[in-house]
């Protein structure tokens, strides 16, 4: 099984491989800079366990775990 961003713990870093699925959410993630080869750092998980906060391209982005599950990472 491939590793996804959801598998990462707080404080870990990974390289993005691709985003699964289709449609608007996927496009939105790419527009926000979640693209192949980019490094993401998982900064935080919200107090209730979802969503998560990541740092990439020098800014902070948040999305839900169901989105994180679609983001395939290397490793």
């Amino acid at each position: 099984m491939e590793k996804t961003l959801k598998d990462l713990k707080k404080g870990q870093t990974a390289i993005i491989k691709r985003i699964n699925g289709k449609g608007g959410v996927r496009r939105r993630l790419m527009d926000m800079g979640v693209t192949k080869g980019e490094k993401v750092f998982v900064r935080k998980v919200a107090p209730l366990g979802d969503p998560i906060e990541v740092n990439l391209r020098g800014y902070e982005l948040t999305f839900r775990k169901e989105e994180a599950e679609r983001i395939i990472i290397e490793g």
């Binding site: 959410v25 939105r28 993630l29 926000m32 906060e53 902070e60 948040t62 999305f63 989105e67």
Partner: peptide
């Protein structure tokens, strides 16, 4: 979808 920037 919930994909949002957390601005400084």
């Amino acid at each position: 979808p919930f994909v949002m920037e957390l601005p400084p």
